[in-house]
Amino acid sequence: MTPPVQFRPHHFLCALGFQGKGYSGSFTQNMAAIVAQLRGPDGDGVLIEVTGQADSICAPCPHRRGMSCVKAAQIAALDDRHAHALGLQAGQRLTWADAQSRIRTHVPPGSLRDLCAGCQWLEFGLCEAALSALHRD
């Protein structure tokens, strides 16, 4: 059995909106591989485990410090808002299909300005576009 991909709560929306941009080449390559798995033919069945620390996406991030981040306070605030919005808690496991369903149910288009406040990627509109597309599907 394939081990679950580990996600911090805010990475569910990041994975949804990812479009090939990142903090470094190795970060972007790693994120692209994870997202390709989620968007692949068996992606809906990919098992994800929620964590409150550095996860599969964070692994090569230049901001990572051990199992934390140089932006720990900002990331914790993002994670708290996302965990609350999506009803997630550390240790919980769900499939990517279940995650998308939760996003569709609990995160309406136009809500990312508040939910993702402080995220440097918000201004690009990639996640908002992906969220809108998810709601149209």
Rank of each mutant, 00 (worst) to 15 (best):
G20W: 10
G45F: 12
A129L: 13
F7E: 08
K21E: 14
Y23R: 00
L16H: 00
L16P: 04
S111D: 02
S68H: 02
D137G: 15
S132D: 13
Q19R: 08
C116V: 03
H84W: 12
G40R: 08
A97R: 13
I103S: 04
G118L: 13
L86F: 00
A72W: 03
T105D: 04
S132Y: 08
I75R: 06
Q74A: 13
R136E: 15
S24F: 08
V50I: 07
C61F: 00
T28C: 07
A54L: 02
A73R: 13
H63Y: 03
G45I: 12
P3L: 14
L115F: 05
R8S: 08
L86V: 00
L86Y: 01
E49N: 09
M31R: 02
G40Y: 08
R8G: 08
F27E: 13
G40Q: 04
G91F: 11
A117S: 05
R136D: 15
L115M: 10
M67G: 03
G25D: 11
A90D: 11
G87Y: 01
G25H: 04
A99M: 06
A76R: 14
Q29V: 12
A99P: 04
C127Q: 09
S101H: 15
D79Y: 02
A77C: 09
D80K: 15
H82A: 10
Q6G: 04
G40E: 07
D79Q: 06
V5G: 07
A73D: 13
G17C: 09
I103N: 10
D98I: 01
G17A: 07
Q100W: 04
I34Q: 08
R39V: 03
W121I: 05
K71N: 15
A97V: 06
R104T: 01
G52Y: 02
A77N: 14
E123Q: 09
L115K: 01
L13I: 03
G91W: 12
R8T: 09
G25C: 06
H135C: 10
P62H: 00
K71V: 04
P3A: 14
N30Q: 02
L78Q: 14
M1H: 09
G118K: 12
G17L: 05
A15E: 05
A129D: 07
Q19S: 12
M31H: 02
F124R: 14
N30M: 08
I103G: 01
G66P: 05
E123Y: 10
L112S: 08
V5K: 05
S68L: 06
G45Q: 15
C69N: 13
P60A: 01
L131H: 03
R113I: 06
D114T: 09
A36S: 15
C58H: 01
P62D: 01
C119F: 07
I34R: 07
E128D: 15
I34W: 09
S101D: 14
S111G: 02
T51A: 13
G25N: 04
G20R: 00
Q53L: 10
L88R: 10
G22L: 00
T95E: 07
A77Q: 09
Q100S: 03
G91H: 04
H84T: 14
M67N: 05
E49T: 05
V46P: 06
A54H: 02
A59Y: 06
R65C: 04
L13N: 05
H63L: 05
D137E: 15
S132T: 14
V107F: 01
H82R: 01
A15N: 07
P60S: 05
R64N: 04
L94N: 13
A59H: 12
E49I: 11
K71S: 12
